[in-house]
Design a binder for these strands. Sequence first.
DNA 1: TTTAACTTTAGACATAGTATAAATTGACAT
DNA 2: ATGTCAATTTATACTATGTCTAAAGTTAAA
Lengths: 132, 132
Amino acid sequence: MQNILILLQEHKIQPTPQRIATTQAVLDAGSHPSADEVWERVKTDHPTVSRATVYNTLNLLVEKGVLKTQIIKEGKVVFDPCVEPHHHFIDEESDEIHDIPWDALKVKGEDSLKDFEVREYQVVLRGRRKKK
Amino acid sequence: MQNILILLQEHKIQPTPQRIATTQAVLDAGSHPSADEVWERVKTDHPTVSRATVYNTLNLLVEKGVLKTQIIKEGKVVFDPCVEPHHHFIDEESDEIHDIPWDALKVKGEDSLKDFEVREYQVVLRGRRKKK
DNA sequence: TTTAACTTTAGACATAGTATAAATTGACAT
DNA sequence: ATGTCAATTTATACTATGTCTAAAGTTAAA
Ligand SMILES: [Mn+2]
Ligand SMILES: [Mn+2]
Ligand SMILES: [Zn+2]
Ligand SMILES: [Zn+2]
């Protein structure tokens, strides 16, 4: 995808080959890959890219607002290409994370929390995907 | 506290000295300690208790329903003495986790998620505690 | 008392993530 | 083009969380 280059430029990120490959990989990975999952993907096409660079790049993409981290799975941070507010459903069988659109759920009362200044919130749901 | 022994017995857990100390520690720790934080506490009174035993005991307490794990902080699981449904607020300055009573927030629409069978859910809020 | 089941322990191991320092690359002024 | 400096990448070491293993210790009951 040529748009990767534009995306990086728009976010003031020097587009090196390693960064392009990493960004490509994290966006192609479907949803919510971990850093090492992204690294695995990068390595298939660019076997010489180091683990540190993938970690550095993902952290940079978060810093620049291209990705958001989610702390939902035990033991690993996952990266979310959707930086807009939304909710998450975790399928406890497959361990997959599914995005729930912001408007699918309505939370009432978050401004009644007088002691807290809420910067962001989300609903985290767990269960299993219905067999259809 | 003498009730610890009764608590363990009620949950069919053999009350060894190590388990009593660990349970005491996790309950006294205020809210949402990590396993190693519990271990540190245990060691002050019982310096010979091993790390593995504290981890084993905490996992056993979860299995038996005395504690619940929460995956909210990056890099570590925390243990929650409150096993009833409730929400969480994370103070991004102090990194402290605060319990929000279930009834303080109302979530609408969770049964409209036709593809998912929701076993549990919670609202996770982030921000900072208001200086009062 | 013997036996078997349960528990604890120290240490090894696995994995996620960060830190460091040297090597490479790239921008850019001469 | 060349030299220079900053940015980037790389291999590697390191830290931290958590699990696993095998041996030793304990408990309870035959
Ligand atoms: Mn953007
Ligand atoms: Mn209980
Ligand atoms: Zn998401
Ligand atoms: Zn809690």
